[in-house]
């Protein structure tokens, strides 16, 4: 049971990490669109929206790389979970306020009439990815993670203390 969960964890890492890498990479070279996408949520003051629009794509790529490679996987998965919670709140809030925008999840963004029909599906997608992230954060170790090479279990005497 434990062994197969570790494989499921690998799958969760690859899927979630892959989504992050694509989402981030598409935005790095389009800073204005990225800022506009953040701004379209009408949640953050202008200067904060600008900082988020500039910094978020890089953060997404790093979280994605860490998950795919399995480096500090639990930490990356925890951060990934937080980001998904934030996105779910963001989409739910524009939905509740009746603002119709492209979520800007994979580049693009801004006003988009008729976008509200996509909100339920976008939230469902983010909830699924949130669940995958939580699984990785919860599992001590998943398969084929670089962590297994970087952090070899300690010498026999200390092995019991090594919980992670």
């Amino acid at each position: 049971m434990k062994g197969s969960l570790a494989w499921v964890g690998l799958l969760a890492r690859l899927v979630t990490g892959g989504v992050w890498i694509v989402a981030g990479a598409l935005k790095i070279t389009e800073p204005d669109a990225s800022i506009a996408a953040v701004r379209a949520y009408q949640l953050l003051p202008s200067s904060v929206a600008e900082a988020v629009g500039i910094a978020l794509p890089g953060l997404e790529v790093v979280v994605g790389l860490a998950l795919v490679l399995g480096v500090l996987a639990r930490g990356a998965a925890a951060l990934s979970s937080l980001l998904f919670v934030a996105f779910i709140i963001g989409i739910a809030s524009v939905w509740a306020r009746g603002i119709e925008i492209d979520c800007g999840c994979f580049g693009g963004g801004g006003a988009d009439p008729g976008a509200s029909s996509a909100y339920p599906w976008e939230i469902a997608r983010d909830v699924a990815l949130l669940a995958a992230s939580l699984l990785v954060a919860w599992l001590p170790r998943t398969r084929l993670a670089l962590d297994s090479l970087l952090f070899v279990p300690r010498a026999a005497g200390a092995a019991e203390g090594d919980g992670s």
């Binding site: 790095i28 910094a55 794509p57 790389l65 500090l72």
Partner: peptide, 28 residues
């Protein structure tokens, strides 16, 4: 040290991405 090294690499990637975005934004 390993954790520090990995964190440093991550910071460098984020910094690089931010730099690319800012350069592009300045150009725009």
């Amino acid at each position: 040290l390993t954790i520090g090294g990995v964190a440093l690499a991550m910071a460098l990637i984020i910094g690089g991405a931010i730099t690319i975005s800012l350069l592009q934004k300045n150009k725009n």
